[in-house]
Structures are given as structure tokens and as C-alpha cells.
Design a protein around this nucleic acid. Structure first.
Lengths: 334, 334
DNA sequence: TCCCCCGGTGTAAAGGATTACACTACACTG
DNA sequence: CAGTGTAGTGTAATCCTTTACACCGGGGGA
């Protein structure tokens, strides 16, 4: 009555060959004579045969599926990263399983991915809790960490060069506005990137002989709401002299832009604004947002290639890659 | 030298039981005496045992992994949908593999997912090419289609009630502005949702005795750039009397909002604007955007539950669910 | 006392592919 | 003509778990 899904033996029977030959047609055609291959392929077609992935993976010890853990699904930042990773993975014949709760404990990371099916794991964890990192690293043989700060573990890593981008942005602002009217609207103080960006901002000010007042650097979250809230209370009180703000990411900058519009503060005339990330959002704000570009596509692709290379050569030395950042000046700050 | 990963037999040996008992401890603990279970668990712990997913899936015929195909990774719309689906899946003990090129052919859909590992498939395909749909349906035993228009195939489906939302929005605008100054800025004419929304707009105008001029409904794409471009050329020429615009999604509306700001057209005084989707974007624009809310979380969760129910009961009758939409009036249109 | 039932456990048979190894037939070499 | 290499194919072991079925011992009913 109900047709069972065809097995390799069915194909073999139909084509008048052994299962080994059928398998070879699928996996190493060069070992099979063209005539036989043709017959086998036809049999596959007619039966609608598709190899059972589990059986294949069981003996092959490989699923060609990678897991990727991101802090969030939302926002252009992760979308772009994910897209790049997905493309790179596909080009290499791999698939991606995504998960989004990196800020939860590692048990969650573990339970949020079908770990038993993965050939490798890429984790973007910006809350550098050493024990969390340690356990994530233990989750798979081939782990790549993105942007997880310092660590003691042997593992492949990709770092974002927050400091140099933040420096460029700050220098750029300092060239236009005195240090005392330069502000940094930061991300969460528990977030690795946020801290690095804030630190670089402070350091750059210091190098210019200014020691930033406490209200010149404030931490919040990576959201437009935080940027808006900050701006509403900080900018309202400002005299008419121009102010410069370096936001820890584009979302925050976007919020600040909205507040400026409400407050009637002209950008860039009275407010010089620079964001961070260089994601899509920065190109659709009005005015267009100056930003520090993070090479998301490069990071995504590199993460995949590091992971795949480790799968191929488990014993090779661990590598650390730094993704460089670059200031892009647009109309919000000139 | 190098420790092999522990097998179920290792655990069994160490705990002094058979592999069957070990397996039972993991899968149906109620069959095992507490004392034995305790010993086995301890052995698992000590060895760091994790069952081989492939072997398990092979015999179980189930991976508890679902695939989901979306048109895109970008934008709040899909992010929210994905998040809801992911949450629902996780709650049900399933994992999600995502893929993003639904507008490509079905071969691409097939190659973009590790089909051989999936228990089911959820596909959001808004370009209702019948043969594409047909082949996607054939990709897995348990397929759920989201919003793929009419179709002849037996398959579970979720539809977005575009028409009723679009009607409400249009009525809302007609209550404030004469029909001759109501515009619809549509999405791609090949997109199912876009067409339904445009059609409902036109129908509502007709019901009010107005037959929309050709320039009152234009198709473009679901992007801020398109909305901006449309507004720059359409709104510039407008007299000072207020105009109403129903955008086919929030992104487009966002672009229109930007253009209005550039053109110095006050919203909502001179331009009444309503979007569609009700994603996050609509809440962070200035002014806040009236929109037709699509219950993304409900859709995501329902898609998962339909899929899982089909897996459980492959022979049950196919179902079609309609997700209702609802107008949310905010400051951009009142 | 005998039997039945049942909780707890073990044995061994799947599950469906890949691939090491063995083999055949034929073409060449010397 | 014996010997060797090679292209093409088949046989059977293997990957690691789950689970149907068998078994065993003891408590309770008749």
C-alpha cells in the first residue's frame, strides 16, 4: 500500500549492480564506468532515491552542518554576519544551524543546538565569562570564537579591532570639537565590544591632554531607545556650541539622531555624530551616519573557513584573526 | 594516546550494566530502578558520554530538527518571525535550520538545507510559482507553507489576511482624506502579499465610489529606498492639501517618512501615512508609524506546531490557518 | 504449593549507508 | 605465454544506538 522510501538496495537491484557501485556513483563517480553510472543515475531518478543522511553521517562521521550562536537575531549587525557566514558555508558545502541566546549559560547554548549533529561550532559571545567560554569550547571539537575577548583556552578566534576604529572616530571628532564637548554613548558595560570602544575613546581623549569627565562616557545598551534617552537629557542642556558624540553602535546613534530631530538640534551643524558597525541602518538614516565599519562579511566568511579548516586538520595550530575596522565619514559628522 | 569519544558500551561496562539499560536511563528512565539509574548517570558523567546523534536518528528516524526557509535574513519582519519560530521549536524539543533564498528555484531550496537531516520543513515563499511550490512540498513529508497564495497541493498552510488589514488601513485614510489623494506604494508585483494589499486598497477605493488612477497605485520593492524614491517624485508635486499614503510595508513607509522630512512635509498634518507589518521598525520611527500589524509571533509558533503535528500524525487532514491582521493607529496618521 | 504477573535487566536484531578488501577480466610487457 | 597492472565491480564489515523480545526472580492470589 504505502510505498516505503527507496533504499540504496532498491536502486542497486533496479540498476543491476551492487550497493557499493550505487554509493560510488553518488560519492566518487570517477571510479565507475560511464555506462554503469548512467544506468544507476537513471534508477535513482525513477525511484526518487535520496540517501539517508543519518546512515551516511553515521559512517562518515560528518554531517556537513555547522552551528552558529549569536547574541541575537535582531538588528542588521547579526543579519549581515549571518548572511555572510551562510554564504560561505554553502559555498563550502556546509549548512548552518543558528541559535540566538549566547548570553545565557552554556547549558542553554548546548540545548539550543543539535550538538550531536554538528561538525563544528561558531560562537559569538560578547560577554566574556571565562567559565562559559570554557564550556562552549568543550562543546565540539571544532570551535571558532568570535569576539570573546581574552581567554586562556586553545581555540580559534576572530577579534574585532574595536580600539583602532574607536580611535579613528574619536580623532575625527576631536578635530572638529574640543575634547570637553566630546561624548561617548556606550553599550552595556558587561559587553566586551562596548568596553573596548569606550576605553579607546577615553584613551584618545587622554592623549589629547583631556581627562574625560564621568558624564562624558556613559554605558547603557545597544539600542536606539538608550541613545534617544541619553540624548534627550544630555543634549537638551547643551549651549549652542557644537557637540560631538561617538555612539557605541549605529542603533544608539540612530536614537540620538531622533532625539536631535525632536530637540531641533541640527546635524551635523550643532551635533557631530559617529556610530559603529557600518551596518545597513547607517546608510538609511537622515542624514547618513558616519560610522566605524566592521567587516561583517569578512568576519562571517572567515569564521566559517577557520572552522572548516579545523575540521579538516584537528591538530593544526590555533589561530587568532583580527578583523580591522575603518572609519567612514558621512554627512552626520562633517 | 588520544582518548576516543566514549561509546554507550563504555558507559555500560563502567556501570556494570548492558547497553540497553544505559539507553533506557537516557530515554525512558521510568523503566530503570533508581539505584541502577544513579550508577549509570554517574558513569555517563565521568566519561563525558554524549550519545551519537546519527546512530540515534538512524534508528529513531527522527532528528528533531526542522528546516525553515525565508525570503531573506534581513529586516525586522523575518527576524521576528524567526525568533517566534525558534522559541516555539525549542519549547517542543526541536531545533531549527534556517535558509534564506526562497525566491530562488526549488533546487536551491533543496541545496540550501540539509534535507536528509530534517524531520520537517517550513517554507515562506511569497512568489507563488506553482511548480516551485509543488517541488518544495515534495521535499519533505511534513511541510508547512506560509503565505504562498493559492495552490493545488495538499499541504498545511498559513495565510496572512492581507486583505482585511489593507481594507482597515484604507478606510482609516479615506476617513481623513478624499479618495483622489490616497495613494498606495506597493511592493513587488510578483509578490503575493504585495498584490493582495494593493488589490484590497483598490477595492476599498472602488467601494467608496472612486476608481483609482494608475498613479495612485505603484509597485516597487519592499525597501526604504523605493519608498523614498516614490515620495520624492510623487509628493514634491503635491499641492498643500493633505495626502494619504498606504505603504505596502513598514520599510517603504520609513523611506517615505524620510522623504517627507527632506521635503519639509509635516507628518501627519500634510501627509497621513500607514505602513504594514507592525515590526519593530514601526515603533522607532518619528513620528511613530501607524501600521497593520501582522502577528509574526503567532505565525511563527503556529507554523511550528502545524509542522510538528503533521510529523506526529502524517495522515491527518491538511489544515489552512489564517493569521488575522489589525490596524494600529499611531501618530503618523492622525 | 503452584502459577501468574511484573519490575528490572540482558541479548541481539535492526536501521541504511560507506568503504576496505577481494576479485575478475582484460590489456600489456618482456 | 607467463606475469603484472588496472579499471570496474561485489562482498561484507562497520558506524552506534534503540528496542523487540526473552529471561529471571520474587510477591501475591487461588
Amino acid at each position: 500500500m504505502h510505498r516505503k522510501t527507496p533504499l540504496i538496495t532498491d536502486v542497486a537491484k533496479r540498476a543491476g549492480v551492487s550497493t557499493a557501485t550505487v554509493s560510488r556513483v553518488a560519492n566518487s563517480p570517477e571510479l565507475v564506468s560511464p555506462a554503469t553510472a548512467q544506468r544507476v543515475r537513471q534508477a535513482m531518478q525513477q525511484l526518487g532515491y535520496r540517501p539517508n543522511g543519518f546512515a551516511k553521517a553515521l559512517i562518515t562521521r560528518s554531517s556537513r552542518v555547522l552551528g552558529i550562536v549569536l547574541p541575537d537575531f535582531f538588528g542588521d549587525f547579526y543579519s549581515e554576519l549571518l548572511r555572510a557566514a551562510d554564504t560561505a558555508a554553502r559555498d563550502a558545502g556546509y549548512h548552518l544551524v543558528v541559535s540566538s541566546d549566547a548570553r545565557a549559560g552554556s547549558e542553554d547554548v548546548a540545548s539550543s543546538l543539535p550538538l550531536n549533529f554538528l561538525d563544528g561550532l561558531i560562537a559569538f559571545i560578547s560577554f566574556p565569562d571565562p567559565s562559559l567560554l570554557e564550556s562552549v569550547v568543550g562543546l565540539s571539537n571544532s570551535v571558532v570564537l568570535i569576539d570573546s575577548g581574552e581567554h586562556t583556552h586553545d581555540v580559534d578566534r576572530i577579534r574585532i579591532d574595536n580600539a583602532s576604529g574607536a580611535r579613528s572616530a574619536t580623532e575625527h571628532l576631536l578635530a572638529q570639537v574640543p575634547a570637553s564637548r566630546c561624548y561617548h554613548v556606550g553599550g552595556p558595560s558587561s559587553n566586551f565590544d562596548a568596553v573596548e570602544r569606550a576605553t579607546a575613546f577615553a584613551a584618545t581623549l587622554s592623549e589629547h591632554g583631556a581627562s574625560p569627565a564621568s558624564n562624558q562616557i556613559e554605558h547603557g545598551e545597544f539600542s536606539a531607545a538608550w541613545g534617544y534617552a541619553w540624548a534627550m537629557q544630555a543634549l537638551e542642556a547643551q549651549p549652542s556650541a557644537p557637540v560631538a558624540v561617538f555612539a557605541a553602535n549605529d542603533e544608539i546613534a540612530f536614537g540620538i539622531l531622533q532625539a536631535a530631530s525632536v530637540l531641533g538640534i541640527a546635524v551635523p551643524e550643532r551635533l557631530k555624530l559617529v556610530g559603529f558597525d557600518g551596518a545597513r541602518l547607517s546608510t538609511i538614516t537622515m542624514p547618513e551616519l558616519s560610522t566605524v565599519q566592521v567587516p561583517l562579511d569578512e568576519i562571517g566568511a572567515r569564521a566559517i573557513s577557520l572552522c572548516i579548516e579545523r575540521i579538516r586538520a584537528p591538530q593544526s595550530p590555533y589561530r587568532a584573526v583580527t578583523a580591522s575596522t575603518r572609519l567612514i565619514v558621512r554627512s552626520s559628522s562633517r
